[in-house]
């Protein structure tokens, strides 16, 4: 082995090994970044849906349930379902949602992926519609 490493062939092998390590680190970083991006996208989607649901139904329970329901659509692949925190509130004429979640890959060697926090805002349905909320004809 030593004699192989001392030759020019061995030198190329060593360089190749070092380059492969760097390259694989890079590839894994890209993969982790991709997974984090997907988790971020799904968290934002959940935030949008929770805000929209609350704006339509005026019910925190239904809004949270809609958010948790979305986890079943592939989101659990990228997000740890047990870490998701859904908060929804009324702010003036808007429904505001804030979602916190931890990505499935939360550690990349020594680097810890941060918690993902996404917010969304939707105008409460009865402020958009002309007349009062009682005139709502859709299904709650």
């Amino acid at each position: 082995m030593r004699s192989v490493l001392k030759t020019q062939k061995g030198q190329v092998m060593v360089e190749f090994a070092i380059a492969m390590i760097i390259f694989m680190l890079f590839v894994f970083a890209l993969f982790a970044f991709g997974m984090w991006g997907a988790a971020s996208f799904f968290t934002q989607e959940i935030a949008h849906e929770v805000a929209r649901k609350y704006a339509v139904t005026d019910s925190v329970t239904q809004a949270e349930s809609a958010g948790k329901g979305l986890m079943g659509r592939m989101a659990y692949v990228f997000i740890k379902p047990e870490t998701i925190q859904i908060e929804v509130r009324k702010e003036g004429t808007s429904a505001v949602s804030e979602i916190k979640a931890k990505p499935r890959i939360d550690k990349y060697f020594v680097f810890h992926m941060p918690y993902i926090t996404k917010t969304s805002e939707a105008t409460l349905e009865h402020y958009i519609r002309e007349g009062s909320k009682d005139q709502y004809v859709g299904r709650y």
Binding site: H48, A51, R52, S120, E121, A122, T123, I128, R129, E130, Q135, V137, G138
Partner: peptide
């Protein structure tokens, strides 16, 4: 959908603008 449900084009436009601001 909003315009169809309410019979108001302005309500539909307002809803579309709101969703556009959201997404």
């Amino acid at each position: 959908r909003e315009a169809s449900l309410t019979g108001s084009e302005s309500a539909g436009a307002a809803k579309a603008r709101d969703v556009a601001n959201q997404y």
